[in-house]
Design a protein around this nucleic acid. Structure first.
Length: 837
RNA sequence: GCCGGCGUGGUGAAACAGGUAGACGCACCGGACUCAAAAUCCGGCGGGGGCAACCCCAUGUCGGUUCGACUCCGACCGCCGGCACCA
């Protein structure tokens, strides 16, 4: 072997070796325990970035480690290949999205292969391949038949730049998640998946996901946004009609002083029809609609409203209260109508103040601070608007007052009693509402899965028969980025015949949201390629044991994937409830204090790293600089450090190779003494440390630190006997095995250089000998009153009496405590003694 | 505003179960090798004081519990992330 470490000479060689021998290809085998390790698959943008390297390096350590631990490890890779950038490339460079995507996949695959990850490439997936997206269509049809996919006209989020609709999850702060264009509302016919049917289960099963970060679960729970309350009908005065509202604060029903309707509420125009208010109210509504949802849902905007001239009757106390239209009420949530309780809701309070509406206190704090809301404070209707010294609404819990038969109850109890009362009297019913909306999946784009639906003038909406799948995305298309869906302009695609009546039919031209593709790809990996069966393979491999990816998918992808898993379970395709047992959300890669991005010009190109230092160094640095869940601060010098470490290890093997070539590294601890014994001890301490650090939350940084320590120890080790050399060989072999999940190429190379014939990736992970780990002598710290005052070496497991005596005998300690009364001596075995005076 | 996370040397970070604060790496300083430099190797490296043995201070701030607190409790400050007229 050469004296110098030259990664270029070895890395490609071993990548080829692994590939040719199919070392990482797996088959289901019920006699071996399985482990499914998955990293979020990439969008084929053309180049990998450091974020990819980090995620895949983390996943690869886990996969290689579990393999060496004896698991049958599924570790696949694929391409999230549909999506907008391909169309943008088509518009800008005139290249077909398919060609652009395939080219990108080819070059990214090369880059990823150059990093030596242990993927089973036989299972590679490309979501833009008809073989893949036909299953999107197949599942869609199954969902359609169950009523889980449906079409409706509604107000949807529209990104003018992407010229397409977006799901709620894909709008951040009123902007498109991809291009940050401000989203507007548009009325369109759209396909939806009925994720709201699963709202309760998606929420409830969060409790099962004990291997997920709390942060992600909180975000999912917030997004689902469950709230429990009642729907109540209020009789409209002088009309047969009733107005239905939703509230979670039925305990404040006696404090209702007006009603607020969303401007879009259909009843508004009826109420004001042919009344003196009509013109004014309709003008207000027009204005509110023009404000747009973005502005109206931002908390800063002033609350505005208008009186409709009509009244409703409070079913509990018979009060007549005015109906207003208010810009802050949303049609999409609850019933689009709200009962207003200004004393106990800040928004209603502000509204009442502005328009001089009465405020009526019905809850008082039972442990009152200084405020108008104490027991001796104002009661009943206390003035209008700002009168009465109110500074704000009291939204907390307390005791109900002036609430008829419910007066004196605690809010908690009052809520229950009033809810039951309302149901008993037929005024309304208990109701659970969710913030979660159905998932709008129609996209007016080309590069996605065609929605397999036909429109027949006679038969209406007809799904494409399963045996006619896939509906192929036509290749002869002109992509301009203008004028709606490109598919709508392709006559040959549009024209079809109705499977029912054989008459002329028209195809749906929208494609599916690309999040559909990624909602079940982890299941697709379980099939042997081209051999899709929804039975044995899946039940063996699923669920994913360890899923790894960025926090940015905390709601989007991870919620959709959970939803799909449950739908596929209910379709009888799989048997699990949740797709991902453990989830690791790794931190961002940071440079100069900001996330690496092209626009900031602070990207580090992984290609350059691999060229200059090799894949092992790139991997090692990503894993050593920070624990996986934290952000990783980029450091050029840090990379140098990782490279130096590998060089040191290489030099060590090259220096000793001849002397240890024919030796047997197998050693019995009992035969050892002196330096051989202490090196052996260090070996086993390192095995323990590395194993524990991997098992405990994948803290690879500290695992690597201990491997560096071991190498440092070896570096200063001077063997004096054959036994010493045998221990030395053992130390090197162990280091190589422990390092191999992190830096597989150099480990493999040196492993073979030492005469081994089989891949190190297939070696068994070493176990450690507890006996060998124990030190003969331990350092005992001496404290006086908790302050460090000395250190002594004592035989391990010395008894308390010996520790005390030795400590007191120490010259320095004896001086410190001379003439003082010893109150107490605390001994922590093998660690510390604290003398309290 | 609400929820969650995080604050440790010059720096990335360790400290797993309340028991030596700063492992390991980087940077820096000194030395060896060299005509010289790079690479490599050896040594030092939280701050302050002392000739020295040693002493004092130090994990965002202030307080508490404890023989002993980076770790537990309370209040506050700062940074990051999520949610936010959801009735």
């Amino acid at each position: 072997m050469s004296e110098r470490y030259d990664p270029k000479k070895i890395e490609e060689k071993w990548q080829g070796y692994w590939q040719e021998r199919g070392i990482f290809e797996v088959k289901e085998d019920p006699s071996i325990p399985k482990y499914y390790c998955l990293e979020m698959f990439p969008y084929p943008s053309g180049n990998i970035h450091m974020g990819h390297v980090r995620t895949y390096a983390i996943g690869d350590v886990i996969a290689r480690y579990k393999r060496m631990k004896g698991f049958n490890v599924l570790h696949p890779m694929g391409w999230d290949a549909f999506g907008m950038p391909a169309e943008n490339a088509a518009i800008e460079h005139g290249v077909h999205p398919a060609n652009w995507t395939d080219r990108n996949i080819a070059s990214m695959k090369n880059q990823i292969k150059g990093l030596g990850f242990s993927y089973d490439w036989k299972r590679e997936i490309n979501t833009s391949a008809p073989d893949y997206y036909r299953w999107n269509q197949w599942i869609f049809i199954k969902m359609f038949k169950k009523g889980l996919a449906y079409k409706r006209r509604s107000s949807v989020n529209w990104c003018g730049s992407c010229e397409t609709v977006l799901a709620n999850e894909q709008v951040n702060d009123g902007r498109c998640w991809r291009c940050e264009t401000e989203v507007i509302q548009k009325e369109l016919e759209q396909w939806f998946f009925k994720i709201t049917d699963y709202a309760e289960e998606l929420l409830r099963d969060c409790d099962q996901l004990t291997g997920w970060p709390e942060k992600v679960l909180t975000m999912q729970k917030n997004w689902i946004g469950k709230s429990e309350g009642v729907e109540i009908d209020f009789q409209i005065k002088g009309s047969e009609k009733k107005l239905r509202i939703f509230t979670t604060r039925q305990d404040t029903l006696y404090g209702v002083t007006f009603m607020s309707l969303a401007p879009e509420h259909p009843i508004v125009s009826e109420l004001v029809k042919e009344t003196p208010c009509e013109k004014e109210v309709m003008n207000f509504i027009e204005r509110a609609k023009r404000q747009g949802i973005l502005l109206r849902t931002s908390a800063e905007i002033e609350k505005e409203g208008i009186f409709t001239g009509t009244y409703v009757i409070n079913p509990l106390n018979g009060d007549e209260v005015p109906i207003w239209v208010a810009n802050f009420v949303l049609m999409e949530y609850g019933t689009g109508a709200v009962m207003a309780v200004p004393a106990h809701d800040q928004r209603d309070f502000e509204f009442a103040k502005k328009y001089g509406l009465p405020i009526r206190v019905v809850i008082v704090q039972d442990n009152p601070p200084l405020s108008p809301f104490n027991n001796g404070g104002p009661r009943g209707i206390i003035g209008k608007g700002g009168e009465g010294g109110f500074e704000g609404a009291y939204e907390g819990e307390g005791i109900m007052v002036d609430s008829g038969p419910f007066t004196g109850l605690r809010t908690e109890e009052g809520k229950k009693r009033i809810a039951s009362f309302i149901e008993k009297e037929g005024f309304g019913e208990k109701k659970v509402n969710y913030r979660l909306r159905d998932w709008g999946i129609s996209r007016q784009r080309y590069w996605g899965t065609p929605i397999p639906i036909l429109y027949c003038d006679r038969c209406g909406v007809v799904p494409v028969p399963e045996n006619e799948l896939p509906v192929i995305l036509p290749m002869d298309v002109e992509i301009t980025g203008k004028g709606g869906s490109p598919l709508a302009r392709i006559e040959s695609f549009l024209r079809a015949s109705c499977p029912k009546c054989k008459g002329a039919a028209r195809r749906e031209t929208d494609t599916m949201d690309t999040f559909v593709d990624s909602s079940w790809y982890f299941i697709a990996y379980c099939f042997d390629k081209g051999n899709i069966d929804f039975k044995s393979a899946i039940s063996y491999w699923m669920p994913v044991n360890q899923y790894i990816g960025g926090i940015e998918h905390a709601v989007l992808h991870l919620l959709y994937a959970r939803f799909f898993t449950k739908v596929m379970r209910d379709l009888g395709l799989i048997k699990i409830d949740e797709p991902f047992t453990d989830l690791l959300t790794q931190g961002m890669v940071i440079k100069d204090g900001a996330k690496m991005s092209k626009s900031k010009g602070n990207v580090v190109d992984p290609n350059y790293l691999v060229e200059t230092y090799g894949a092992d160094t790139a991997r090692l640095f990503s894993l050593f600089a920070a624990p996986p869940e934290k952000d990783l601060e980029w450091s050029d010098q840090g990379v140098e450090g990782a490279y130096r470490f590998l060089g040191k290890l290489w030099g060590l093997v090259s220096k000793y190779k001849e002397r240890i070539d024919d030796l047997d590294g197998g050693i019995e601890f009992k035969e050892l003494e002196g330096k051989g014994k202490s090196l052996y001890r260090k070996i086993h301490q390192t095995i323990k440390k590395v194993t524990n650090d991997i098992e405990r939350d994948f803290h690879f940084n500290t695992a690597l630190a201990s491997l560096m320590e071991l190498v440092n120890v070896m570096n200063s080790f001077e063997p004096e006997s054959d036994t010493d050399l045998r221990v030395f060989r053992n130390a090197i072999e162990t280091t190589l095995i422990l390092l191999s999940p992190f830096a597989p190429h150099i480990s493999e190379e040196l492993w073979h250089a030492l005469g081994h014939g089989e891949s190190i990736a297939l070696t068994k992970w070493p176990s450690f000998d507890e006996e060998a780990i124990k030190e003969d002598e331990v350092l005992v710290v001496i404290q006086v009153c908790g302050k460090l005052r000395g250190k002594i070496y004592l035989p391990a497991n010395s008894d308390d009496r010996l520790i005390k005596e030795s400590a007191l005998k120490e010259r320095k300690i004896a001086e410190l405590i001379r003439g003082k009364e010893i109150k107490k001596i605390i001994v922590v075995k093998n660690k510390l003694v604290n003398i309290v005076i």
